[in-house]
Design a protein around this nucleic acid. Structure first.
Lengths: 213, 213, 213, 213
DNA sequence: TATGAATGAGTTTTCATTCAT
DNA sequence: CATGAATGAAAACTCATTCAT
């Protein structure tokens, strides 16, 4: 009943604490693999426990319930994703480069750890219309944060002249994000023919964003 | 074992004959509503039967198993979708107009019957890596047919000069499709802020596709 | 509710009647094949109907319920079996020959139509402790008739001196019948190694029955 | 997928440890009663759970699936049966006595715990023609082990002169085993008249096996 | 006489979750 | 901290049987 969130053994210095953290991490690792491979619904907590090498009770001790694992993973994947984008953005020469850098980075992450990204384009564990789940809230929050990063880059581009000034925000940001999400879905769910179209994504965006003339 | 596909009571000409068709249709109607609202996995066949006003057995009589319902719905939505695109394509003045027409049409359909389209961006009933399900096969087949339509329009645009000639196919087609899929996901799963960015989609594509100069 | 037994279209001369008989026979034929192959419980009436090429309703029209088919088949197989034994008995030179003839005949029938005989050694559709089923009644009745035939032969043997006079009846008859039933079960259910031990059955019985000296 | 076999709670030394074993045992006890009384197919797992006084989930926790219970029971009954035969064999004065001892022992076991033995002559859970079930494999394996014991006794009898030397092996062994199986079936399924023919079984075999003269 | 659409009670099985230890 | 035995509610699916035609 009581939601057990973020149960981390306080004081990571203690040997027992470190072991707990190890167990927690093992569950996360097992879950991300299985959720990505078979989907959230098709994966049982028993399966996760087995692959993680822990008892079933351990999962509920650390994550409260099954959705808790997903919640945890979603938060992590979003965080990592966003942080990488932000650092890519910082290094970019201008706004356009920043946006295109984000696009390239996205597909690099898809290639590097498809498991994590698959979580984002696979099935959702809850109703889209209802706000009752923490899971949906996390997705929405993180989603808007990522959108902000993109819009930041776009605005910078419009200011430094590398991006067409008449493109509306956040609409344009949403469209780029749409393209990334959709492409990832086609790629990871193997719904597209065997063509490396993701390499063309940056160029496609460059044309769409470039100022006229 | 034996797959019960397309079990339709003898031709709908007779007034009584439509009865069976009615039940079948009621199940489809109930399923599309519930699958879109709660997802495929979160919807039980009992729930579908209740909403459809038929017995649970009737579902299995007509569709063989739960996936059979989804299969049926997916085939329909894909078919309708593609046919509309094809007719939009036929009416277009040039290739670029055809592509943009497809984009607009897509969002029009999303607005008109969000339930059906939601099926395409919501959860998948099976592992993405495996080909064992008819459902995945249908999605893949239909997906490639839709891609073909888009590429046809693009090629026509490249021939009549309305689309940049150096854009590679089918990569560019896949990117447009990605944008549509991703946008639909953001929209229907309410992951985007309340902004009508879909109206900008055609313009975004126009810029990306337009020949230089 | 109402038991429909022996519903045969009266007057087999009528063309309609002949057709009904055809359907009835088709069901019986299909059922004996499937029951023997998969067992009574593992065979659905739908399967029987499909193999027989009739509608499911037809089965219930002719046999009342599923057990009705088995009832019908059991009665037939027992009847045939007994009739053959009786005619073998009539032709035998003496009692011992009659018994051994029955033994040989039994295995000949097993070899000739294993499907029918399999019904007798496979699973029973009902509780052995209760008498509530017609099925069990039929089995018991027919069983005792067959036993009678065997005992008749044995008694004749004891009278003509070919069978040991001190062997008790019907015990000895039951033992021979046991041997036949058990051997059939081992054979048809493939629980015995690939040895043609049934050829030795008559010799085994001959020794057991032979008068001393 | 993963077969849960032999899930036994850690060693029965601890008083608490026997608890799990208790539940397991309760299921076995309930199952053997119901399977013998009504047959495997006619018994639902719910019925077994109810009689055992455990939840239905417990059955699947311990036995994996319904067939798992039967498997377990079959293995046990076969093992016990064979062990008793072997010890009877060891005590016998000569080969003939050993064989007849086995025969007597068989019927003694039938009388002592008819439930367990009934499992062996009642219905089979699967097609006889197919090897796909563990259940059938167990039956076949154990069956051949029991046959070996019988043949051992027969061979010993042929060597010590108490059994006719010209009787072929393993055919003769199979015939004796047939007689035992068939008799058990007649007895336990109450298909024979109320006659204690099993008392005659040893004498019947003695005559069949005795050396001439 | 024959059909087959429709059913609902029943089946096996799964699984997230609890809790005593 | 961690376990894993035990559960019960619910899931998908089956199937003998009915009945209007």
């Amino acid at each position: 009943m009581a939601r057990i969130s973020d149960k981390t053994p306080r004081g990571g210095a203690k040997p027992g604490g470190a072991q707990g953290s190890t167990r927690r991490q093992a569950v996360r690792e097992a879950a991300v693999t299985l959720f990505a491979r078979q989907g959230y619904h098709a994966t049982s907590t028993a399966e996760v426990a087995r692959l993680a090498g822990v008892s079933e009770g351990t999962i509920f001790y650390y994550f409260g319930n099954k959705e808790g694992i997903l919640l945890d993973l979603l938060a992590e994947v979003h965080l990592k994703y966003r942080q990488r984008m932000e650092s890519a953005l910082a290094k970019a020469a201008n706004g356009m480069q920043a946006v295109l850098g984000c696009v390239d980075l996205h597909f690099k992450q898809v290639r590097q750890d498809s498991r994590l990204l698959t979580l984002l384009v696979r099935d959702l564990p809850v109703s889209p219309g209802r706000n009752d789940s923490q899971c949906r809230q996390v997705m929405r929050e993180q989603s808007s944060l990522i959108l902000e990063v993109l819009c930041l880059a776009l605005r910078r581009g419009q200011e430094d002249g590398s991006v067409a000034a008449d493109l509306p925000l956040p609409e344009t940001g949403l469209l780029i994000r749409s393209l990334l999400i959709g492409a990832t879905r086609l790629l990871l769910l193997k719904l597209a023919p065997e063509v490396n179209f993701e390499d063309q994504a940056a160029e496609f965006c460059r044309r769409a964003l470039a100022p006229p003339g």
